[in-house]
Design a protein around this nucleic acid. Structure first.
Lengths: 246, 246
DNA sequence: GTAATAGTGTCTATAAGACACTATTGA
DNA sequence: TCAATAGTGTCTTATAGACACTATTAC
């Protein structure tokens, strides 16, 4: 190597295509709640490889259009759901020679939470069908394309574990909700019931939601409506929900 | 597209070099303890770009030699430190058009913990110097190459936060240690002192370390030596260390 | 004996779980 | 009135922090 070389002359002569580099993509596990069930978004692949199989939505980085990885993910999310995402979090990165038949590939997985308010799902050229499916049913009866079953399981695990010490589930609800609705959401993800008093004490002490002044009315005592205070969609509680004692 | 096409004919005609894909690398924050100080490994870059600047060790995936991302990281770790790593954990992935002057690039960051038992650092063709430096000093006085200051900060944050609810610091010590030595390690990372009784109660109740029967002798009362029980290098405590009360 | 560090006994404080209780609506 | 859900009062339990105490070594 020329010892007189400068950084700019080095870069001028640098050609990325001389090197063997892996394919790099993003994949998303998008959670929502529909019919009191935790569901995630799946697409049926319209193109090879794994054409016709169910997969997590995702895709390749557009080097021209995307400035950052986050741009890639936001663009893909908009394409599929058309709505603003309430919570987006990078979960893990998978890379191997065998996970994609096209060759060495790397994928960065994200978990997204959205409120199920009037979403219209839209397929694109890469997917012929886009649907919400209950996560429990996917894990039981579906074999996803590539290593997407693993990716999904890890995102679900991340969600379950964060429910124990954060306020994340607020992001699955519309902008106003009752404490009972919020508790039901926590319980759905945790997989077990929480003591009502403990839950209310915990949420109210955290000072992360505010009464709207409105009430949810029904065929029983009306419930106070709350909305999240700013910056409180990922509050960290000092202690975890412990679950029922024996 | 030919509707008769099969997956195998698709793959035969697939040429990865037709696409614009990002450069993909791994970077590592390797922690150890030396002179009662938390240090990390830095390399001085021997090649462009950022030649001569301090950086985290890392490098590109070798598509031939590495089967998985983990192989890449293990290979790099061996190259630099020559020792077995006690704990290795993926932390985050960074991707953007601007983080590397060679073009759109993605890097996956890892945090590693190793015991400081007779390690011989070895430089390679990409680094002219390899050193352990106190993390506090790096954060104060060093401007690292690329976005490595950010990556380092995020790994350090991950370590600090896991110390509160896991047994991770065991991985920074040799195979046998006293409870006082372990406590000092926790305190070094947390940045504040822990109540001795609380610490011992917590560690012993977790049942993750065993008495070796040996004692550490000095100019005072000898201390029991412990070694980690199997599968206990990342024990999760139910509650966090809370720190001093006001 | 003293200095130094190892190790314990036992109190308080905090926040979670349990569970019985009252409150407010529609029908 | 009753059914249904909202919301509270208060006791118990678990585990962290505080802090004074005792134990065992070298000198």
């Amino acid at each position: 190597m020329n010892s007189q070389e400068t950084e700019s002359s080095f870069l001028e002569n640098y050609n990325i295509h001389e090197f063997d580099i892996p394919l790099t993509s993003v994949d998303m596990t998008i959670f929502t709640i529909e019919d009191d069930t935790l569901k995630i978004l799946l697409v049926k692949r319209a193109q090879f490889p794994s054409k016709g199989e169910w997969a997590l939505p995702g895709g390749f980085i557009n080097l021209k259009a995307d400035d950052t990885l986050n741009d890639t993910v936001s663009r893909k999310l908009k394409e599929k759901t058309g709505v603003e995402i309430s919570h987006l979090e990078q979960v893990a990165t998978y890379g191997s020679a065998s996970r994609d038949p096209r060759g060495w590939s790397v994928t960065i997985s994200y978990m997204a939470l959205i409120s199920n308010n009037n979403i219209t799902l839209t397929a694109d050229e890469s997917s012929e069908e886009v649907v919400w499916l209950p996560i429990e049913e996917i894990q039981k009866n579906y074999q996803l394309a590539f290593d997407h079953s693993t990716i999904l399981a890890e995102c679900y695990q991340r969600l379950k574990s964060k429910v124990q010490y954060t306020s994340l589930p607020i992001n699955l609800l519309p902008n106003t909700f009752t404490l009972s609705e919020l508790q039901k959401t926590f319980e759905l993800i945790l997989g077990y019931g929480i003591e009502k008093k403990s839950f209310r004490r915990r949420l109210l002490a955290a000072d992360i939601i505010a009464e709207t002044g409105e009430m949810r009315v029904g065929s029983n005592r009306p419930a106070k409506l709350y909305c999240p205070k700013s910056s409180s969609k990922e509050h960290l509680f000092q202690r975890s929900i412990e679950g029922p004692r024996e």
